[in-house]
Amino acid sequence: TTVKLGDIKVTFDNPEKAKKYAQKLAKIYQLTVHVHGDTIHVK
């Protein structure tokens, strides 16, 4: 599962960890989390 934020891409083996990371980023940057299959976009 890949978390994308602009040019930053972080890949996790564990989808749950990816989701938590995405939510953490979203909170920090006051953005929202969008899940598209294996990719989680923070924008």
Rank of each mutant, 00 (worst) to 15 (best):
T1W: 14
T1K: 05
T1M: 12
T1F: 13
T1V: 12
T1H: 08
T1R: 06
T2H: 09
T2I: 13
T2A: 04
T2Y: 07
V3L: 03
V3N: 02
K4P: 03
K4S: 08
L5W: 14
L5N: 03
L5Q: 02
G6W: 10
D7H: 15
D7P: 12
D7L: 14
D7F: 15
D7N: 15
I8A: 05
I8K: 09
I8Q: 04
I8M: 11
I8S: 06
K9Y: 14
K9G: 05
K9P: 02
V10D: 01
V10I: 14
V10M: 11
V10R: 08
T11K: 12
T11N: 08
T11E: 07
T11L: 13
F12N: 00
D13K: 11
D13W: 09
N14L: 06
P15E: 09
P15M: 12
P15V: 11
P15W: 14
E16T: 09
E16K: 09
E16M: 08
K17P: 03
K17F: 10
K17T: 12
K17L: 13
K19F: 15
K19I: 14
K20Y: 09
K20G: 05
Y21G: 01
A22H: 01
A22W: 07
Q23S: 07
K24P: 00
K24M: 15
K24T: 09
K24F: 15
L25P: 00
A26N: 02
A26M: 04
A26K: 05
A26H: 02
A26F: 03
A26S: 05
K27E: 13
K27Y: 11
I28R: 13
Y29R: 03
Y29E: 03
Q30S: 10
Q30M: 09
L31T: 05
L31M: 11
L31G: 09
L31D: 03
T32L: 08
T32F: 08
H34L: 12
H34G: 04
H34W: 11
V35T: 07
V35R: 04
H36F: 12
H36Y: 12
H36P: 00
H36M: 14
G37A: 06
G37E: 06
D38N: 14
D38H: 10
D38I: 08
D38F: 07
D38P: 07
T39G: 03
I40P: 01
I40C: 06
H41I: 14
H41S: 09
V42W: 03
V42N: 02
V42I: 11
V42R: 00
K43P: 03
K43W: 13
K43I: 15
K43G: 14
